[in-house]
Simulated assay, not measured.
Amino acid sequence: MNKVILVAHGKLAHEMKNSAEMIFGALPDFESVEFLKEEGLDTIQEKVFGAMKEDASYLVLTDLFCGTPYNASCAVAMKNPEREIGIVSGMSLPIVLEVASMLQGSRLEDIVNHVTSIPCDTVKAFNQAVIEEEEDF
């Protein structure tokens, strides 16, 4: 069984889950963890570990590579080598929706490999997109 924990600065993780649920529907296997200004690395580690309530594989999506949510999540993974924990930074709504669509029925490793391959397909500049569309005709 796969579960997802969204971890980000401020309330971004909560709002990312809310936005994903507007599009995808209820996401009961998703938890969100906020990182507040007054909190530090230890507090976020406790929150991330506390969100791992079940014996499951966990994908942790964080906002920034090497930011406190990412570093805290990595620390949790290193302290719990017996657990299957994948960590991916660069959380975005397209990535969260991709994870939601793959969550059940896919191996955690396959989900990580897929979501790390899609940013080039989801991040587009207007001019670039127009040129690509014209080339397709």
Rank of each mutant, 00 (worst) to 15 (best):
L93I: 09
L93S: 05
P94Y: 08
P94L: 10
P94K: 08
I95K: 07
I95V: 12
I95P: 02
I95D: 04
I95T: 05
I95Q: 07
V96H: 06
V96A: 14
V96E: 04
L97F: 08
L97E: 03
E98M: 09
E98W: 07
V99L: 05
A100K: 11
A100F: 11
A100C: 13
A100H: 13
A100I: 04
A100W: 09
S101L: 14
S101M: 15
S101P: 04
S101G: 12
M102L: 13
M102Y: 05
L103A: 02
L103V: 09
L103C: 04
L103S: 04
Q104C: 11
G105I: 08
G105D: 04
G105M: 10
G105V: 08
S106D: 01
S106K: 11
S106W: 12
S106C: 14
R107E: 13
R107K: 15
R107C: 09
R107N: 06
L108P: 02
L108K: 06
E109L: 03
D110Q: 10
D110G: 10
D110L: 02
I111Y: 09
I111D: 01
I111E: 02
V112M: 06
V112D: 00
N113T: 14
H114P: 00
H114A: 10
H114Q: 02
H114D: 02
H114L: 00
H114Y: 05
H114T: 07
V115A: 01
V115T: 03
V115Y: 03
V115Q: 00
T116Q: 12
S117I: 06
S117W: 03
S117Q: 07
S117E: 05
I118Y: 00
P119R: 05
P119V: 09
P119G: 03
P119S: 05
C120P: 10
C120V: 15
D121K: 12
D121C: 08
D121Y: 06
D121Q: 12
D121S: 13
D121G: 11
T122C: 13
T122Y: 07
T122V: 15
V123D: 03
V123M: 11
V123P: 01
K124C: 01
A125N: 14
A125W: 12
A125F: 15
F126G: 07
F126I: 15
N127Y: 11
N127K: 15
N127G: 15
Q128E: 15
Q128Y: 10
Q128D: 15
Q128N: 11
A129P: 12
A129T: 13
A129I: 10
V130K: 06
V130C: 08
V130R: 11
V130A: 08
I131V: 15
E132S: 09
E132N: 12
E132W: 07
E132L: 06
E132F: 05
E132D: 14
E132V: 08
